[in-house]
Computed example of a mutant assay.
Amino acid sequence: MALALIALLLVEVLLLVRWAPFFFGTGLALFNQRIAASPAELAQLSLGGLEHDLPDEKWMRLVFHALPDGSVAFRESYAPHFWGRYFPLLRGQLVVDKRRREVRVIGRCSWFALVFTAMLLPIVLVRPMAWPMVVFLLVFYMGYYIQRRRYAGVVEAVRARLRSEFPRRFIDQ
């Protein structure tokens, strides 16, 4: 069982690093924010360079990559970083839907976190001595909470681009 979890984690990291389009487009959506936009706003919207519109944080920086279907995938950078670390639970995708006149920011759950959580609860029920492992659920929740806030920053950056305004961090400086 432990080897299967390690293999799943390695496969997931490989898919993230390779920017696999099917991986970013499928999965359990934990974060789904819709941003309404007029056809004119959607026509002038450019999602390239969005990572420069996000504020610098103590956490790993977000990196963006255009996918073949026209959407934009994003995730945490794997560059060396020595400040804030958390377990990355979500991978993101920006989808421009011209028919519905909206931009969606979707955060999908990590396969590893989902499978680990599903396996952890029966283990704790069968083996009560394993209850300290429930701490991992708290770690996952804290990671989700941090990423939800960071994804809200992506939503604000997209809104600023739709309004053709500079992000707030450039106005304040």
Rank of each mutant, 00 (worst) to 15 (best):
E102D: 06
F87K: 01
Q33L: 06
G49W: 00
R75T: 12
R150H: 02
L8I: 10
G48T: 10
V115A: 13
H81I: 05
N32W: 07
F82A: 13
H65I: 01
E165N: 05
I6H: 09
F82S: 10
Q44T: 12
L50Y: 01
V124L: 13
L162H: 05
S77T: 12
R169Q: 15
I106F: 01
Q33R: 14
R104M: 10
L50S: 03
A40Y: 06
P39E: 05
W19N: 08
S164V: 11
R75C: 08
E57H: 03
Q93L: 15
A130F: 15
L5T: 04
F82M: 12
R104E: 11
T117S: 15
L15T: 07
L67Q: 11
V96I: 14
G27C: 03
R108C: 07
Y151A: 10
F116R: 03
R159K: 15
W111K: 03
V63E: 12
E156F: 03
Q93I: 11
L121T: 10
M142G: 06
R34N: 06
E102H: 06
A36D: 11
L9F: 14
K58H: 02
A37G: 04
R85M: 10
F24H: 09
A113D: 05
W131D: 03
R61Q: 04
R108N: 06
L120M: 08
P68D: 03
L42F: 05
A73I: 06
T26A: 12
L30G: 10
L3V: 07
D56S: 03
R100T: 07
P55A: 03
F87C: 05
A43V: 01
E41Q: 15
